[in-house]
Structure formats: C-alpha cells, structure tokens
Design a protein around this nucleic acid. Structure first.
Length: 341
DNA sequence: TTAGTATT
DNA sequence: CATAATACTAAA
C-alpha cells in the first residue's frame, strides 16, 4: 500500500482551518459546525482516509461527511491540493486566525477589526492597541483594549505559542492544594475536581473545581483570594475563573447540594458528552442543565442530587468519567418508550 | 438590555 | 435542513 499523500491529521488541520476562516467570514454557524464536526470525526477515525476513499461507499461513508465535505476531502487526499482553501485564504487573511486565538477575542471582533481598522496580523493589532487606535471601534472600549493588550503580552511571554496543556501528574499537587484550601472555607460543604482531570486525561488545559455550598458568593470570594491566585479573570455569583502560576487557568463553580450530581456531570463533560446527554433529555421531554434534570411541561425536578440519579432518569447506566470522551455510547442506548416523543 | 465570548 | 444550556463582562 502506498503511503498516503495527505495524512488524516493533515485533513483535520485543513478542515479546522476552513472552519476558522468561515467563522471569521460570518458564515452560517451550521456550516462552520459541519466542518468542525467533520474534523473531529476524522481525528477519531481508525483508518486512513485514502483507504476509505478507495473503498466501497467512498468518503460519503464517513460519519459527518456530507456531499460538500466528501468532495473537498476527496480532492485533497487524491491530489494533495485543495483550491477551495486557497480561494478562502485569498478572501480572508489567514493571519486573522492568530488573532482569533487570543482569549476574549472571538470571530465577531476579528471580523470587525479587519473590516473597520484593516487589522489582519497580531503585530498590527499590537501597534494599534498600543497607540490608542482601537478605542472607539464598535464595541471596543478602554476595558476591552486593556484585555487585548494583556492577552498580547501573555502570548508574547509564551513566545507566540498556544497556552501549554499540563501533564496530569504535574497538576495533581495543584489540584490537591486548591481542593484543600477550598475545603477549608467554612461555607464549603464538598469539593470535587471535575473537567478533563476527572475524566482522567493525561494532559489538561485548565482545572475545574466544583464546590457545594449554600453561600456561593462567600466561597467564590475566598477562592479568588487564595494565595495561589495570581489574577482574577472573572467572578460572578456562581462561578469564578482565575490564573495561578504561569497563567494556568482554574475555574470554580459553586452549586447548592440538591444540584451536586447535575453540576458534577456538567462540569466533568466532555462537551460532546454533555450535548448528547442534553439532547437525549430533550427527546424525553426534559431539560438537563447543571442544576438538575427537569420535566419540560411543568419544570418539575426529576433528578440532580447525584450523577447516578441523572443518568438513571435518562434511562442510562452511570457512565464512568473516563468513558465520557466519546459521545457514541449514549446514542447506543434506546430512549425509553414511555417518554419517547 | 444586548452582544460577544467563554465553559462543560 | 439544523446537536445543549448557561455564566460573566463590557458596551450600548
């Protein structure tokens, strides 16, 4: 078998790049999502796309591939080229993707900076922010410019690279010390580490802490004041985000005891798992959020105190956190007849 | 109050 | 055509 000209990871990068560019262009969100979804499917594929393309159903047999994406990927794996991406890059400067990567700067802001200020690169943004040229642009006040400058400085201090994911054994002591400190708060009834750390991932981009309390504000004030905290990014009545050493982000979410299970489920993720679970709840005429599982027609709480209750009320066995990466197994379970739409 | 971004 | 739900901040 010949070595594939274009590997699966190459295709993943290409699809993600297309999604970024379409997003900056303000393209239909469903289309953008289709490219991102297709990228995820390719990333989880067990076979080389070039093999699949040569096989029976062709690329249309790949989940998440419709006619448009199948054709583009087919061209890419067959020829190693994709003129569509070239056209897109001619229309939308690809350097905008670097700006899009700044925390707090999303697709709308990137599009506005490009359209109203002609800014297409990090350097141009830096220069404009430094000399006060940004203020007065739509939805850009002094505070937002400050945040952009901070994000630029943080990026420069990393040498322009992306935020570093940390190996889990490096995070274990941090998680333990933050949990212990939070547990020491008189209003904290229970503290759990959630997120990708709880899912057992070997690297984590941040740390997610869940606190059970009937005095969320007091606990979150305490959290933001911990000695490990270098900077408070946000603090509201139920949630706070901070940076600890090295600009590593830690999120803390406070919920009442009756919501503990639903909140732990939500905060553990993965995002894809949550979307599947919540979609399943809708098909069963219920709504799932971090506060509980509720009947749609009267809003009555069906579950929420424990994770087991939540999964069970959705007709599912409790799924261990390490198996919540791949949403597939939720779909495998049938929706109970009694509550099916 | 709304827009934008972020979070799982 | 069309996959969840909510939180926080700054701007208007």
């Amino acid at each position: 078998m010949p070595t594939a000209l274009v590997s699966n990871p190459d295709v993943v990068r290409t699809l993600d790049r297309i999604a970024d560019l379409l997003e900056v262009r303000g393209e239909n969100a469903f289309k953008v999502r289709a490219y991102r979804q297709a990228a995820v499917r390719v990333a989880n594929l067990g076979r080389a796309l070039s093999d699949i393309a040569a096989g029976d159903g062709g690329l249309r047999s790949v989940d998440g591939f419709g006619p448009a994406i199948a054709e583009k990927v087919g061209e890419l794996v067959a020829t190693g080229r994709l003129p569509y991406l070239g056209h897109l890059e001619a229309e939308i400067p690809p350097t905008l993707i670097d700006i899009l990567a700044l925390p707090g700067v999303g697709p709308r802001t990137v599009a506005m900076l490009w359209r109203d200020a002609g800014i297409t690169t990090i350097d141009e943004l830096d220069a404009a922010a430094g000399c006060g040229a940004l203020e007065g642009l739509p939805r850009l006040g002094a505070r937002t410019v400050e945040r952009i400058l901070a994000a630029l400085a943080a990026r420069a201090s990393r040498g322009g690279g992306p935020p570093r994911r940390r190996p889990r054994d490096e995070l274990t002591p941090l998680a333990a010390s933050l949990s212990a400190a939070l547990s020491g708060h008189p209003a904290a009834e229970r503290v759990e580490v959630a997120g990708s750390f709880r899912r057992g991932r070997d690297t984590c981009g941040d740390l997610d802490l869940l606190v059970v309390t009937s005095a969320p504000d007091a606990v979150l004030v305490g959290f933001a004041a911990l000695p490990q905290v270098e900077r408070v990014l946000a603090r509201g009545p139920t949630k706070s985000s901070v940076h600890v050493a090295d600009g590593f982000q830690v999120d803390c979410r406070a919920v009442p005891l009756e919501s503990f299970g639903a909140a732990l489920q939500y905060f553990t993720g993965s995002q894809a798992h949550n979307v599947r679970l919540r979609g399943r709840a809708l098909r069963m005429r219920m709504t799932l959020n971090e506060y509980g599982l509720f009947r749609s027609h009267d809003g009555m709480r069906v579950a929420g105190q424990t994770e087991e209750d939540v999964y069970s009320a959705l007709g599912l066995p409790w799924i261990p956190p390490h198996r919540r990466e791949d949403p597939a197994e939720i779909d495998a379970a049938p929706v109970p007849i009694a509550t099916e739409v």
